[in-house]
Design a protein around this nucleic acid. Structure first.
Lengths: 350, 350
DNA sequence: AAATTTTAGCCAAACGATTTAGCCAACTTT
DNA sequence: AAAGTTGGCTAAATCGTTTGGCTAAAATTT
């Protein structure tokens, strides 16, 4: 039961077809160098099919120097806030990889340091031909480690202009969300954000400001509510509570950088006696699974993580093959999903 | 920038240490066959460290016949309901694999047929040394395909006694949840479930029945609300709505096989004019991210997917190495998480 | 001192593909 | 008819390890 049946090798195919292994390889890989007569080709193909021959990956890998495997370098947090993004990301990566017969392995890490060790290891063992990185930061130590040694593509915005990146159009996304609130008559819109060290936060702030300023309003830093930690309901609650306590007059709307943060805003608002959406309109980000089901259902900006990562993977594959990678930085648009929490729904009912 | 710097090979280490490659390999792999003097060992180790030698995976793979890679055969659904489970699963698999220096690749499929093709392919190309399968069904076609050809472990219950499985203790879980409701005084408890073709559904039904019967109640099939499709808010809504319309008197409690189904139950109840938890107590399963944040917060049974898959991966690794795998079937306990939706909270406040 | 055992380490053959260089016949060209 | 071309294929090298078999030298026994 444990014995593996001997697999078919290229040698056996060669023997069966009455040619040399070189010819078999030529036929199967369609090499330009050696042309093979049509008749011989047919014979080889037939023999390969009949014997059920599939080249052994590890032998190919050794000879060609390619593992035909991509690495996804992703954080493994204790909570599962990232899980929808992760799932979508894997779907996207697989979609792009599968078409070309590539595999995807997960390089999962707990902290930045472990990530570096993992990348280093992947590099040294040459276990992958390229990696996808997420969530770039200023002065990202991963880039110098990888540069010139292993092809990589970054998902998210990244200051280095050399690096190939694919990102959500966060500026546009925040701008549209803010404009939506402006259109509903709001003038004092809070922005609940994660630390600005993250590029995403910078971009969304940018979009928020642009919308305000294009509407003739001046940006007011007092309306910023920053979290210390990362995304998370509690973080949103704390940040918004602090904002409410700080201001004489509460804002009439809040744009949160993530649905979890928005949920925290909802809780803080409730505790502060503000009704949503009547006293406070709330807009989140990412269209998390719970966004449609919380009370009230959350207006949110949907991002297309699957598409994002699919593009990134495609670019990475090109990069590895040495093909030209069209634009060095790609932006994927987002979509505003209007639900009850911003008041647009009830307004329609008036 | 694209040039990879030539990697260090075992030959260079051998030269640097003034020994043969065989000796280097012996030292590094600690083979019993060839003993090496302590002094020489030190010299080799030092040379390897100094040069930063890491054996090339693909060469090892070719020579040893092992890829040191595990496959996770997981469904890729359009919606992201599975995403928390998937995330936890990957965490668990990586935790077990990483310790021993193994890699994990994702074999993601859209439908059963694609899964078979993928497994077949992995088998033929020998791209993984073993796979983890999820969600077994009756007469699962994956088992005959893999048996005797590729080691595998199944996550979930599986009728074949030969197969190594790791599963949640679903019987116990459903029993405890039901007992909780019984303790709160409920006597007419609905059970909202997915098709019984799935082993999980069978097991949870079993636990539900056991609790009822041990409490001296007779099982009433009229209180079953089955979905046609799989998990999903809409499915739960439909199933429970149908139940409510069918019965003269609504049940006072509902146990749903998943939080998404429970959410559907919540919606159906609301539409039917039943208040939760006052008129209807609701308990879900899986402690989904939204469970704590919906209205009212959902009492639910938490499962430990990470642990589950960690154990499964560990068993798989053992199986691959030919080590004995302790019990052929392992059960991981679950945990009831009490929130407002079952009424236990408000009761306490009386 | 010779025979035997043990220790320490080397040689060379795999593993299963890809790829380079070259051979031979047949066909063109001059 | 001699010289070059080309088409069609093969032999052999190669990728970087691991490992079974072997052999000197050293240690031990007879």
């Amino acid at each position: 039961m444990r014995r593996k049946q001997a697999a078919v090798t290229i040698r056996e195919v060669a023997k069966a077809a009455g040619v040399s292994v070189a010819t078999v390889s030529s036929v199967l890989n369609g090499r330009a160098h050696t042309r093979v007569a049509a008749k011989t080709q047919r014979r080889v193909l037939e023999a390969a099919r009949r014997l059920g021959y599939r080249p052994k990956r590890s032998a190919q890998a050794l000879r060609t120097g390619l593992t035909y495997t991509l690495g996804l370098s992703v954080p493994l947090c204790p909570d599962s806030l990232l899980s929808p993004f992760f799932y979508e990301a894997v779907k996207g990566a697989l979609k792009a990889a599968k078409q070309r017969g590539w595999l995807v392995t997960i390089l999962g890490f707990q902290d930045r340091q472990e990530e570096l060790a993992l990348l280093q290891s992947a590099l040294e063992q040459r276990s992958v031909d390229g990696v996808l990185l997420f969530d770039p930061q200023d002065d990202d130590p991963r880039l110098p480690l990888l540069k010139g040694r292993l092809p990589f593509v970054v998902v998210g915005r990244c200051s280095d202009p050399e690096v190939i990146t694919v990102d959500n159009d966060n500026v546009q996304a925040a701008k549209l969300a803010t404009q939506h609130l402006l259109r509903l008559g709001h003038r004092r819109i809070a922005f609940v954000h994660v630390p600005f060290r993250l590029a995403t936060a910078q971009d969304r702030l940018m979009g928020y400001r642009m919308a305000l300023e294009e509407a003739g309003l001046t940006f007011d830093a007092n309306l910023l509510a920053g979290t210390e930690g990362y995304y998370g309901v509690e973080a949103g609650y704390q940040a918004f509570m602090a904002l409410l306590n700080r201001l004489r007059k509460p804002p009439t709307a809040a744009l949160a950088m993530d649905d979890a943060l928005a949920l925290g805003v909802l809780q803080a608002a409730q505790q502060h006696g503000l009704r949503v959406p009547d006293d406070l309109a709330v807009v989140g980000f990412n269209d998390s699974p719970f966004a449609a089901h919380c009370e009230p259902p959350l207006t949110t900006v949907r991002i297309f993580a699957e598409t994002l990562v699919e593009y990134a993977t495609d670019a990475l594959l090109r990069l590895i093959r040495g093909e030209p990678v069209a634009p060095k930085r790609m932006l994927v648009p987002t979509q505003l999903i209007v639900r009850a929490s911003c008041g647009a729904m009830s307004r329609k009912n008036n």
